[in-house]
């Protein structure tokens, strides 16, 4: 890695904003175009940016492999949310029918379980994107 102050400073300054934007897309997935996948991809891209600018080790420090393994298995939570429907006596992944308040259209807390599902997907996609890049980059080095 060559030292490049401009690239490093820009990346450091931009990363929080990129991640904030990603979170916004995830949290407003049921209100505006976007959702878990798109927001997760943005957050994953921010981590790839860190790795490109600061090197793989530095990026690994920010988010360890253990953590991304856990996050990648967050799909389990998705399934568990799906079980809420069954527990409430209706079908798998049911939301409104399971008695979860649907809220007023346009509010952040509306649309039943879609918000929760979006968050889970967002984490999953972000960590997958990160892992994909890191694994490929490491393969290339090793």
């Amino acid at each position: 890695m060559t030292e490049d102050i401009i690239v490093k400073t820009t990346a450091r300054l931009m990363t929080p904003f990129i991640q904030m934007f990603g979170l916004y897309i995830i949290l407003h997935g049921h209100l505006t175009p976007g959702g878990g996948f798109q927001g997760g991809a943005v957050i994953g891209a921010s981590m790839i940016l860190l790795a490109v600018v600061y090197g793989l080790e530095e990026g690994e420090k920010r988010m360890s492999h253990d953590l991304s393994t856990v996050l990648e298995s967050s799909t389990i939570v998705y399934v568990l949310i799906g079980f809420i429907g069954i527990a409430a006596g209706v079908n798998f992944l049911a939301s409104g029918a399971a008695g979860i308040p649907l809220g007023r259209p346009g509010d952040l807390l509306s649309g039943g379980m879609i918000l929760a599902l979006n968050i889970v997907i967002g984490f999953k996609v972000a960590s997958t994107g990160k892992t994909l890049f890191y694994t490929l980059a490491k393969e290339d080095e090793g």
């Binding site: 049921h30 209100l31 505006t32 175009p33 007023r104 259209p105 346009g106």
Partner: peptide, 14 residues
């Protein structure tokens, strides 16, 4: 295939 001229993003707002 799914696009409509002048169509909006399919999200219902009150």
């Amino acid at each position: 295939m799914g696009s409509v001229e002048g169509g909006k993003a399919p999200i219902i707002v009150l």
